[in-house]
Design a binder for these strands. Sequence first.
DNA 1: GTAGGTCTTTACAACGTTATACAGGCGCTT
DNA 2: AAGCGCCTGTATAACGTTGTAAAGACCTAC
Lengths: 343, 343
Amino acid sequence: MRVSLKDVAAHAGVSIKTVSNVVNNYQHVTPAMRERVQRSIDVLGYRPNLAARHLRKGRTGIIALALPELGNPYFAELAAAVIDAAAAHEYIVLLDHTGGYREQEVLVSQGFRARVIDGLILSPIELEAEDLRDRAENVPLVLLGERDYDLPYDHIAIDNVAAARAAVRHLVELGRREVAFIGARRGRSEPAQLRVRGWREELTAAGLPADDGLVAATDGWGHADGADAMRRILESGRRPDAVFAYNDPMAIGAMRVLFEWGLRVPEDIAVVGFDDVVEGHFGAVTLTSVSPDKEAIGRLAVESVLERLGGNEVSEPHRVWADYRLVERESTLGRAAAADGRG
Amino acid sequence: MRVSLKDVAAHAGVSIKTVSNVVNNYQHVTPAMRERVQRSIDVLGYRPNLAARHLRKGRTGIIALALPELGNPYFAELAAAVIDAAAAHEYIVLLDHTGGYREQEVLVSQGFRARVIDGLILSPIELEAEDLRDRAENVPLVLLGERDYDLPYDHIAIDNVAAARAAVRHLVELGRREVAFIGARRGRSEPAQLRVRGWREELTAAGLPADDGLVAATDGWGHADGADAMRRILESGRRPDAVFAYNDPMAIGAMRVLFEWGLRVPEDIAVVGFDDVVEGHFGAVTLTSVSPDKEAIGRLAVESVLERLGGNEVSEPHRVWADYRLVERESTLGRAAAADGRG
DNA sequence: GTAGGTCTTTACAACGTTATACAGGCGCTT
DNA sequence: AAGCGCCTGTATAACGTTGTAAAGACCTAC
């Protein structure tokens, strides 16, 4: 049988509340009493019942993290960062995945999937502003990934447009003149649109073509989707000399197709990805990629949630920008030049 | 303010328990009464408080999944499978990662990290039998991954020795005569040892060398560790004509080093991995790999936990074997031959 | 020596839910 | 028509914890 405060109190010959005081490090307990109670706690092996504590205090010590999918290593690495950041504050993470489907994202944001949480970190794909407008739930919500709309929720994101522009600028500076974009999402998707926008802005600024024939839309965002998109572009007859992909898995899928078609990377076609996942560091051609500071994103997200929990509910929702940088590797520079950029 | 049973009861003009009966689909409630109460529930937007329910019933609806690391896509994919399987039973998954460190694994197994759970699925790396011997915790524990020792806990695993033998047999049948093993773990690690055993058994049975010079131990099990191990073997002067790696990331890291050394895969050296992660399907050379049925493993693990929760505590701990198969791709067959095996 | 204050401990209620035991009401049997 | 049992709904007591308020112990100062 599980031992409760009552059992400890009986064993130590004190009241329940005194035991509770010891457990919670209440200030006004004499050292003698503290030790006596502690001994009983140790002897009986008492461990607080979190359900009861939660019921009483209204806090669970759990925050939920809802990601589109774990199969994408970017999200897996991000999840790891969140779990560690939460652990630093003695919080535990409940993980959910939405598949990137609007319906699932709405369900999660309304708290229908997990109802024992103090806060929620959500990385939406298809979710619309209106879906959050009438959110009745009162647990703090922090959104991951840039959103264009104005809502009373904290955002943690990198500047997608600027990051995409940096990636494309890198290609342009290398002398590339026809840069394709892979992974404009078929359905709505805020981040994808922003990266397309950055791609278009930078090309236009450089006086280079940014027509629709260079953009390949996809349904998903995995390796296979990138491969399909690349194949479609090549089959259309276009021969871009560079490709900017929505994320690394798609870039790697695209490179695979380039190999199959006998096109060399980077000599014939340079490739840039997004997310800087480990996988990109070890292919036959290592991948140049935009590298968001995942550790910072995870930490900032957790801190934002906990800050909201802290009580000062009036504070304005803030949009926090996390760092990113472009890591140059063989897929744009060739092996020799990228040697010291490898990581 | 949050609405409780009491509020609904007042609104509907009935007792709290009647509302509870409706919520829990208790059999003996007249349709009229059910509808009347349901209307109040809908109007007020009542949602049960899980903490209270947990306190009363002793169940949380949460199971914990503790994995070594999420960065390894195998575990990420496995986590996705567990989350889905749990969702099918209206359970939610709390995710933790241990880094594969014995200390963390012990902490998790003792329930010190998460104390609001009904059951625990743990994928241990360094954990020893003795660590579980005096486990006081009474939440059901299911172990993922084969363990050699006998303990009163369910195991879900594939047959590592047999799977490793199948991988090596494939190489031998292709005419390879010197097969290296990458990823024998420096510290203790049950699965690694079993795969080394399978490697050794199969080679010995074929009358081929299985000496220590062909085995490279590592501390971790990521891409970089595989690359380091491969480099060490090559620098030692050995020129195996095949490599069997502990897992896919290590195999991919090893292939990267082979490219750097100008060795062709599979012509000069064939490579086989383990886990069949998506990443291996899309490299310049796609990777032959042992493919465990992750979906089945996740499902069986969840079902085992829930079965223990079901009450029949006396039932013997069972060791469940999940399926696996060897998926042949370019890293052992070359591009043409593997074309239809690609997936 | 006692009043007044501070420090320590206690009793009790409450958090929201479900289990138990019981009270009516109804229909069926005899 | 009375008795019996079943069906439906109700009051009440838990589950284990913490906050509140108050009681008790102890000390200082006059």
